[in-house]
Amino acid sequence: MHTMPDTTPCANCRKPIDDQHTLCPSCEVRFALTLLRLAASLDPLYAMLDATVHYGGHEHEHTQTATPPTPIRLAVLDTIDDITSHAYELHRVLLGMPDPEHEATYEDVIGTLTVDAGAPNLSTHPCAGMYMRTALQLMQATDLLLDPPDLHDIGHCTNPLCGVMLQARDGQSTVTCPVCATTTDTRTILLRTLERLCWDDEHRGSAAQIARVFTNCGIPVLANTIRQWAKRGKLHAATDTRPHRPTYRYSDVYRLTVGVKRD
């Protein structure tokens, strides 16, 4: 009579594995690669502390300041400290305290992460799943620092005592004001911005700019549609526009798009 080997779920993906392991082979590889990625990210993180570095992919159009902005600097320092703590703690858990001849490697965070990634019990330690999730969270935070999402202006803070311009990335549902800490639904801010733009004839923009604002506010319209309206005479360009890049009034596009006429 054959007996089935005992199985247990992977601590990360829940796939069935043998009871000698905590992580499945795929998650073990992912864990090891994440540790190596963290090691490779330390030099760029330290470089971000240099005032000469352009943030956000080193774009040349970014303004250089005498010192890095404080929120970014603190976030980088915190992330480096968290990676260092994780590397040392994981080394202690997996391999124990280092021998004296390996002390220099242990004190080197990059070397420690590299050693951790190659530990023979990386997938068998009972707490491997917890340490893997921590590493993945650290990698996510690091990626956001090294490659921040594209932010664009969405409108002013809804707090009447504040009113600073807020920024958000595409698809972000809420935004918190960095000055007064007011959290507002992004859609609410966008609709307020749209209302302000549409009910004042002085606000104008290119076809692409207007199309983006309308679409972000839930009123889909293509830039080419706006250009076609202008070509057919339904929409007139602003009088002070440049011939090669016409601008249009938000209010005119709103009337054509939604079909609402002002009194």
Results as ranks from 00 to 15, higher is better:
Y131T: 08
M132V: 02
M132S: 11
R133D: 15
T134L: 12
A135E: 12
A135N: 11
A135H: 08
A135K: 08
A135L: 08
L136P: 00
L136R: 11
Q137H: 14
Q137L: 12
L138S: 00
M139T: 10
M139W: 14
M139V: 05
A141E: 13
T142W: 11
T142Q: 08
T142K: 07
D143R: 10
D143C: 03
L144M: 14
L144Y: 10
L145K: 07
L146Q: 07
D147N: 08
P148N: 09
P149V: 13
D150F: 09
L151F: 08
H152S: 15
D153N: 06
I154P: 00
I154F: 00
I154H: 00
I154W: 03
G155K: 02
G155C: 00
H156T: 05
H156I: 04
C157V: 03
T158A: 06
T158N: 10
N159C: 02
N159K: 00
L161V: 12
C162K: 05
C162N: 03
G163E: 07
G163R: 06
M165E: 13
M165N: 08
L166H: 07
Q167G: 01
Q167A: 05
A168H: 01
A168R: 04
A168S: 07
R169G: 11
D170A: 14
G171Q: 07
Q172M: 00
S173D: 12
S173R: 12
T174M: 02
V175N: 02
V175W: 04
C177Y: 09
P178N: 12
V179A: 12
V179P: 00
C180R: 04
A181H: 15
A181S: 14
A181E: 15
A181R: 15
T182S: 13
D185M: 08
T186W: 00
T188V: 13
I189A: 01
I189K: 00
I189D: 01
L190V: 03
L191I: 09
L191Y: 00
L191A: 04
R192Y: 05
T193L: 01
T193F: 01
T193H: 07
T193R: 11
L194R: 02
L194C: 06
R196L: 11
L197N: 09
L197K: 06
C198S: 12
C198T: 10
W199R: 10
W199L: 13
D200T: 02
D200V: 01
E202A: 15
H203Q: 11
H203F: 12
G205Y: 07
G205P: 04
S206D: 09
S206P: 03
A207K: 07
A207Q: 02
A207Y: 03
